[in-house]
Every structure is written in C-alpha cells, then in structure tokens.
Amino acid sequence: MTTTTRVAPLIDARGLHKHFGPLHVLKGVDLMVAPRELVVVIGPSGSGKSTLLRCLNLLETPDSGSVVVDGIDLMDPRTDINLARQRIGMVFQSFNLYPTMSALGNVTLALRHVAGKSAAEADVLGMAALARVGLADRAGHRPHQLSGGQQQRVAIARAVALEPRAMLFDEPTSSLDPELVGSVLAVMRELRADGMTMVVVSHEMGFARAAADRVVFMEDGAIVEQGPPDAIFGDATHSRTRAFVGQIRA
C-alpha cells in the first residue's frame, strides 16, 4: 500500500465476462487504470486481450460486469455510447484508415461529424494532430501512399484529435516491419509524457520496460498476474508468467 491519496480510476472495469457462442473468452476480469497511468497487457494469442480492450469502449458488449470510464457508466442503457467513445481513443493493429480519404481527411472526419466542428476548425485541429505525430507534411497523402508506420501514426492522430481522456492500443506495432516500429513507439511515449492514460496490448518489451507503470499478464480469459514491468519481466511470481515472458524474450 502506498501512502499517496487514492485517486478514482479513470478506467474502472469489473467482473467482465464475455462469451462468443460456447467460448468463454473473458472469465471475470477486473481492470482499473488510474489517470495518467500506462498499462501494458501481455499474454498468449487467444487469451482475450483484444476482447478485453474492446469491452472498454463497448465495441464488444460484455455479458456481465461493469465498465466505467471517466465517470461514465458505459453499460448504462441511458448512456450515449457515441458521446462516451469520443473520450476513449482506439488504435488497431491493422490501422483501419479510410482508404479513400487523405491523412487529413481521416483525422478530421470525426471532428466534423462527431465533435461538430466546422470544416475550417477541423482542418486546423487535424493539422495540429498530424503535427503531433510528425506527419504534417503528409496531410494530403492517401493511406496507400504512406508507410505502415506512418499509417499507424495517422491512426493515432485521428484518435488523439478528439482529445480523448484515455487511449486503447491493440498491438499497434504487430503488423509493422521492424524498422518502422520505433517511430510509432516514439509517438506513444510522447503521448505518455503528455499525461495520456493508456492501455496498450503489446509484446514490445523494451517499450513496456521503459514506459509502462504496470504490466498485466493475461491467460485463458483471466488476469494471472500484474505488477511493475521489472517484476513481471524480472522475476514473476507465477510459473506461467515466467514461461510466457521467456517466450517473448526469445
């Protein structure tokens, strides 16, 4: 127990259960994330990491449990989920940029259609977001004219432009060539330095060690163990965690 005053978690998910047909994918997961905290989630493929992340903005609806983000109860039927999602940015493994729009068009779409900005305002904010990820000079490029790393940075800018309170990253560098991973991680580090609350599913151990406050190890739909990166990567309590860490290190 620390002696610092307890702050209310920005993300407060409890007792999450999720089935896909007969498959029990989340078996009672609790995840609390403090403001400005960066949590890295690791675990074998199929352990439910993406499903957990997608429950945090209700892209998947949990069968039971509660998800409260920034004081908003996402499971409450009276909650305007579209309004709530503006506060929770998400970045996907496959970027999911809109192929027919320019980088700037990708970033301004939600500013115009969701945040209600005029085209001119949206362009200004969109350019600022692109500058933040170092791509102001690529504003007019279409996704297919950009490298994977640049596409992922545009995707980050697209989410950041709405000024979310928290960001979710689902294996943001897994589909990138190794030489492009660094540029994306650098942008994520800057976000962290600016105080963004982040949940990152990633097996980039260097990033986790340097940037994470906490590492969560998931297996088979449950959180097995969590703690500071040094503890999880150094000497984890559970043999399963140690075995998995050994694998990703190899």
């Binding site: 903005n57 892209l59 579209n82 309004l83 709530a84 999602r85 503006q86 929770i88 940015g89 998400m90 996907f92 496959s94 999911n96 940029l97 809109y98 779409l109 939600a110 259609h113 969701v114 995707a155 697209r158 989410a159 709405l162």
Partner: peptide
C-alpha cells in the same frame, strides 16, 4: 472490411 466501421464507431460515429 469490418475494421472500417469499427474504427468509425470507436471515434463516436453512430
């Protein structure tokens, strides 16, 4: 691809 609508929904588009 479903990722297209998911990205849009995650940004708050209805």
């Amino acid at each position: 691809p479903p990722g297209q609508s998911e990205a849009a929904r995650s940004l708050g588009l209805g």
